[in-house]
């Protein structure tokens, strides 16, 4: 039963992915991307990876959908009709896809008894049996992430920080042009208007 549910969810993923490729309407494609992440989160729940599912649902179908929508507002909602496809591009995509599928052939089947986690049980058994007395939290994922592998999580936090800094340096910095004093926050504001001023009067929408 569990494998059946997982199979159905994974089939949904393939269908949604094909839909995203086929669709010309970018807005619908972004919404489908959110649905893709939510379905993937469901598949993770079925596979008992609750923490991963949580992250996928929050980041994949929440934040990234909104960021994609923000990016969509710079461009048109319709994909440009393509001219003749370059055969080099098609070849590149086919070869990359074939390599990726070839790479999955080495991976153990779901629940396989010969997977690395099963044949080298020392680490998993150690975490399951000892983490309660060594670290404490009942959620072993937290113990592994924050304590046993705290150094890795430090690196991940630095990656998030670096991503934020990169976006700030590309989009959010002051524009230093001679003779032109740009507003501190963002190009969207009119110069000299502080957020407090904006509160007093109704915000003028640009959609009118």
């Amino acid at each position: 039963m569990e494998t059946l549910v997982a199979d159905v969810l994974l089939t949904f993923l393939v269908v949604i992915a094909v839909g995203i490729i086929v669709l010309r309407d970018l807005l619908a494609a972004v919404i489908l991307l959110g649905a893709y992440s939510l379905t993937a989160a469901g598949a993770f729940v079925v596979m008992d990876a609750v923490d991963v599912a949580f992250t996928e649902a929050a980041v994949g179908s929440g934040i990234s959908t909104i960021l994609f929508l923000g990016a969509l507002s710079f461009t048109k909602h319709e994909q440009k009709p393509r001219g003749n496809d370059s055969w080099v591009a098609v070849l590149f995509v086919v070869v990359t896809g074939a390599l990726l599928i070839y790479g999955t052939l080495d991976m153990p089947y779901y629940g396989s008894a010969t997977s690395a986690a099963q044949t080298n049980p020392d680490l998993a058994v150690r975490f399951l049996q000892q983490s309660g007395s060594e670290v404490g939290p009942p959620n072993i994922v937290t113990s592994v992430l924050a304590s046993y592998r705290g150094y890795d999580t430090l690196g991940e936090t630095m990656v998030v920080f670096a991503a934020g800094m990169a976006v700030l340096s590309l989009l959010g910095l002051k524009r230093r042009r001679p003779g032109l004093e740009a507003p501190e926050d963002a190009p969207g504001d009119t110069p000299g208007e502080t957020p407090a001023d904006a509160l007093d009067e109704p915000p003028t929408s640009r959609h009118t």
């Binding site: 934040i63 909104i66 960021l67 923000g70 990016a71 507002s73 710079f74 991503a163 934020g164 976006v167 700030l168 989009l171 959010g172 926050d185 963002a186 190009p187 969207g188 504001d189 640009r206």
Partner: peptide, 12 residues
Amino acid sequence: SLFYNFASRRSD
């Protein structure tokens, strides 16, 4: 901050 920076560029 990602959201601020993306959303505030709309008027450019």
